[in-house]
Each structure stands twice: as C-alpha cells, then as structure tokens.
Write a protein that binds this DNA or RNA. Structure first.
Lengths: 186, 186
DNA sequence: AGGATTTGTTACCAATCGGTACGGTACACA
DNA sequence: TGTGTACCGTACCGATTGGTAACAAATCCT
C-alpha cells in the first residue's frame, strides 16, 4: 500500500539527516509500515535508497539541469546557480545526491550505479553549458571544458554542503561567488 | 601496555578508511589487544577517536601550520599548500581531520570539541597568513581576511577530499590552482 | 614472603542492524 | 459456499555494535 508515501518518507528522512544515519527500521516506524511490506515493495535496502535517490533526482536535480539548459548567458546562469546553492530553501538541509555521493561506499550497488549515472549526467550538462558559452564567446576558456565543468560542479557541491553544515548563508554565497568569479570576464 | 601502538593502529585504520567504518572491535583485532584493555586506556570510543585525532594533528596538521607560518610570500605559500594537498603522499587517502569533521555528528562530545578547536586554530592560522600578506602588500584584499581564510581552508579541504575519492591528481591540482588563483595578482 | 594493586582476558550484556519464516486475513473466482 | 491467492504484520533470525562483570596472572611495596 501507498508505495509513494513510503518513498516520500524515505526521501525526506534521508535528505533531512543522512542516509547513513537512517535505518530501515526507522523508516518503517516513520511511515507506519511493517518491514516485510517495505521489503516487498523495494526488495532490499539498496532498492529503497535507489528509489529514494531516483525520486529526489526527478524532483530536485531536474531544476539544476533546467538552469543549465536555460540558454541565458554565462553570468546570468552563474547567478542562478549561486542563488540555487546559497538561497533555495530546499538546499537548507543539503542535497541528498551530494550526501549519498559522499558516502557512496556505504550504499548498495544499485544505488551506487545510479549515483554514477547522475554524476555523469551532471558533468555532461555542465560541459554542454560551458561549451555553449565558449562558442558564443561568452567564456574565454583558459582551461578545458571538462576541467571547468568538474570545477563548477564541485564548487556548487561544496557550497551546498557548507550551507547544510550550518555555515552562514551570506558567507557561503560570498565564497561561491568568489570561486565562480574565475569564469567571468571583467 | 603499548598505548602508543594501539593509538598508531587506530590512527592508521581511521585514516585509511573512515572513522565511521572502523569499529572498536576491529581496532582491537588489528592491534591484538583485548577490548577491556583498550577501554582502560581510553575510557570509551570517544576517548579513542579523540586521542587518534590528537595524535594525527600533532603529526600531520602541524606541517600545514608550518607552511602557513613560514613567512614566504603569498605565491610561494599557495604553491606549497597546493603541493601538500595535491601531491603529498600522506594525503593520498585523505585527511583524518577532514574525514572526522565531515562526519562529526557521529562522534562523541570530546572528539567533537577537539575538532572545533582544531578548526578554530586552522582558521586563525589562515587569517594570520592572509593578514601578513595584506600588510606586506602581497595581497590586495578584495574581501575580508576572515572570509578569505575560510575560503582558503575549504578549498584545500575540497582538494584533499577529492584526491582521496580517487580523482585524477593532476586534475585536482589544476582545480585547486584555479580556485586559489583569486588570491594572486597577475 | 605476602597482601594489595595493576594488567589482561574470556565471556558475556542489551541494543540495533538488515532480512525473513510463517501464520492470519481478506478478497476473487469457481 | 468453498478454495485459491495475494497481501500484511508479528515475531523471529544471525551478526555486529559499544560496553562490562568477573576472573587469572603478573607486579609491586612493605
């Protein structure tokens, strides 16, 4: 029954704290569902974490991809990314994807595979964005598109993680702005 | 007996993998010591992790402080920090301090207190370094010393963490160099 | 020498983990 | 009405966790 509700509870619990700190038993209790029910729905813990990450990706990560694909210039897109990382209320408790990626050795193979897939998608999206900026003359590339994409992604991940760990949001924004200033031409 | 050897084993084990993935039982087995012996030496798990972090700080973190206090100019010091983060063999499997800081909610109160103390010390060292550079005209501060120090520390932490997670060392160096280029004047 | 004290170990504790065997219940279809 | 089937939850499993009680051996100090 209500596989969606269980999934919602799982996403929220994993996201709010940390996948490594939320046990299957805890999720069962939170969702008011017996353990065998949960196992029939998701197979095992790996299936649940995978489903949770999948749901999260479609619901939240898609927005980041949308920003990157929006076709604004370099500067406006960077501003939008900074806003998302430093001010979007959904990132207040961090990003479930980053949390899972940081502790991926503790997760099952299916979830790990999804993490790598999402990571590759993100890298590709960043690269497409930078390539477009370079081609339109909006970015005087001093480093490879690949390296720039990785840098961009990691700086955003760092900002979100810092914010989740209680760092002053204004400071986080300041630091991310500084880190991404290398993409801007004066 | 041999509290030093047990501590060595603990530091190595925590450092090599991750404090959250190494149980007390495992350390006892690795060190060839019974559990009650270990408890008599360190009181509880919190005492052991705290002692391990303390030993690590004196042995490894001190080197970073030494670089910051060496009184070379901005550029040479940044180069030394980049070398340390991206090439020092001791950072191949990451930094125990950063690992503990990332998962500090899973650690005991004593260890957490030490983490915060070390964090404050590091921040102070970075601030002293930047202040000296500003005063000597080596850095045209466009942001506060405090923010710059935090940025510097976090970028180094990011680089070390990326390297520990298997990222190409040359790429890590490239990204850290890019991130720290904001401190350099052309 | 001999009691006291430290040092160390075996063997246990309760709690929690992920995972499942199995008995009950409700509904569909004959 | 009888029977098969699909769901659901209690109550368990073995493993592992951090932590201890209780006992044995060695050492030390008078």
């Amino acid at each position: 029954m209500s596989t969606d509700r269980v999934l919602d509870v799982a996403v929220t619990a994993y996201w709010q704290s940390d996948p490594a700190d939320v046990s299957l038993n805890a999720i069962c209790k939170l969702a008011g569902v017996s353990k065998p029910s949960l196992y029939r729905e998701f197979g095992n813990e790996d299936g649940l974490t995978r489903a949770a990450l999948d749901s999260y990706a479609q619901r939240v990560l898609a927005d980041v991809f949308a920003i990157l694909r929006s076709g604004q210039g370099m500067s406006a897109t960077l501003d939008a990314l900074i806003d998302f990382a430093a001010a979007d209320p959904r990132m207040e408790t961090g990003c479930l994807f980053y949390k899972m990626r940081a502790g991926k050795h503790r997760l099952g193979p299916e979830t790990r595979a999804l993490i790598e897939e999402l990571d590759a998608n993100a890298q590709a999206a960043y690269e497409a964005f930078l390539t477009a900026c370079r081609d339109s003359g909006d970015w005087s590339a001093e480093l490879s598109v690949e390296a720039g994409a990785k840098y961009l992604g990691e700086q955003i991940a760092l900002a979100v993680t810092q914010r989740a760990s209680g760092e002053n949001p204004a400071r986080v924004r300041e630091m991310l702005t500084l880190a991404l200033s290398v993409f801007r031409r004066d």
